[in-house]
Simulated assay, not measured.
Amino acid sequence: MNLAFYLFLDALTGMIISIMVVANTLLGQATTMGVSLLVNHVIGLSILTLVLLGGRKSEAIRGPGKQAPWYLYFNGLFGLAILNLNYYTVINTGASLAMASTVFGQSFSSLLFDLTGWMGMQKRTLNKKKVLSLIVSGIGIIIMATSGNNHFAVFFVLLGVLAGALTMTQMVLNSTFASYKGPIRASQQNFISGFCGGLLFYFLFQRQETLAGFSQLPSISPLLILSGGMLAVFVVVSTSYVIIKIPAIYSALLLSSAQILMSLVLDVLFFDSFSVALLIGAILMLLGMAGNLAADKKATP
């Protein structure tokens, strides 16, 4: 597969992430965040298990089945923190500002991965053209992060930044795990660990609220109930394929721009609002990413 396909899949994943975050938040508001997480993980785990059963004779689906480091089996626990952080940022700052703060966290952590080679990523250096392009992208991120200053809540923006950093970390670990087990089986294991962690946490600390939330499910649209888990499967599997194929900073910028553009659409469709500043910020991020790609293409024969 060529670079253009991976870039397209990365951008599509960013758009799906925005839709998934809003769907998870709406389901959490209708029930509880615990119900949203557990329902999504059950749906995702069921889909992946059926795929593995149906394709057990296919090496592409079954995966190489190599022995992986023990800590990768618990990567799904990141999802417990990410879903809760996304929930609180969206309901307190709105979809666009929540995505902007998440974007900043993704971009900052991905830059660290590329510069340090942390978590097995290929170590890369910066030249003048890349620095200039990253500055342009940084300006876009700052514009997005400060565009909602009339309702600016520093605490919740910081939560969004943390969610973004954890998201990029989980994506890198997902991709590493997939190199041992294959994307489908690695994703299934992530859903298993996320479900077990969520079940333990919510029934230890929020048992009554969670049980009450489950009683609300019959009155909720089946589409809303199913959407979060189904979209999560796409996100986890696609990032397992993509993240190690392109530099993490490019992946973050593509994911970021796609998330912001989609969040603008979601705000218009569901919340009757539009932010020109966020649109400008997203465009600047795309320009910065294009500059990075051009610098790499010129430097690499």
Rank of each mutant, 00 (worst) to 15 (best):
N2K: 06
A4P: 06
L7Y: 15
L7Q: 11
L9G: 13
I19S: 10
N24Q: 05
L27R: 00
T31L: 04
T31Y: 00
M33P: 02
V35A: 07
S36H: 03
L37T: 10
L38K: 06
V39Q: 01
N40W: 01
I43F: 11
L45C: 15
S46F: 15
L48N: 11
L48H: 13
T49E: 04
L53S: 07
A60I: 14
R62K: 15
G65I: 09
Y73N: 08
F74R: 01
F74V: 13
G76C: 04
L77M: 13
L77G: 10
G79L: 05
L80P: 01
Y87E: 04
Y88T: 09
Y88Q: 06
T89M: 01
T93E: 09
G94S: 09
L97K: 01
A98N: 06
S101H: 03
G120V: 00
G120R: 03
T125I: 05
K128W: 07
S133R: 03
S147P: 02
G148T: 00
F155C: 03
V157P: 05
L159R: 04
G164M: 00
L166M: 10
T169V: 03
M171E: 10
L173P: 02
S175Y: 05
Y180W: 09
I184A: 08
Q188D: 01
I192N: 11
G194N: 04
C196S: 09
G198V: 05
L200W: 13
Y202M: 03
F205V: 12
Q206Y: 13
Q206V: 05
L211I: 13
A212K: 11
F214A: 04
L217W: 11
S219E: 06
I220S: 11
S221R: 10
G229T: 00
A232R: 00
A232G: 10
V233D: 09
V235T: 08
V236E: 03
Y241E: 07
Y241T: 07
V242E: 06
I243P: 02
P247M: 08
Y250E: 12
S256A: 14
L264Q: 08
L264I: 14
V265M: 13
V268M: 12
F270R: 07
S273N: 12
A277V: 07
L279C: 03
L279P: 02
G281C: 11
L284Y: 08
G288H: 09
G288P: 03
M289D: 09
A290Y: 08
A290Q: 10
N292K: 04
N292H: 09
L293V: 11
A294L: 08
A294T: 08
K297L: 10
K298C: 04
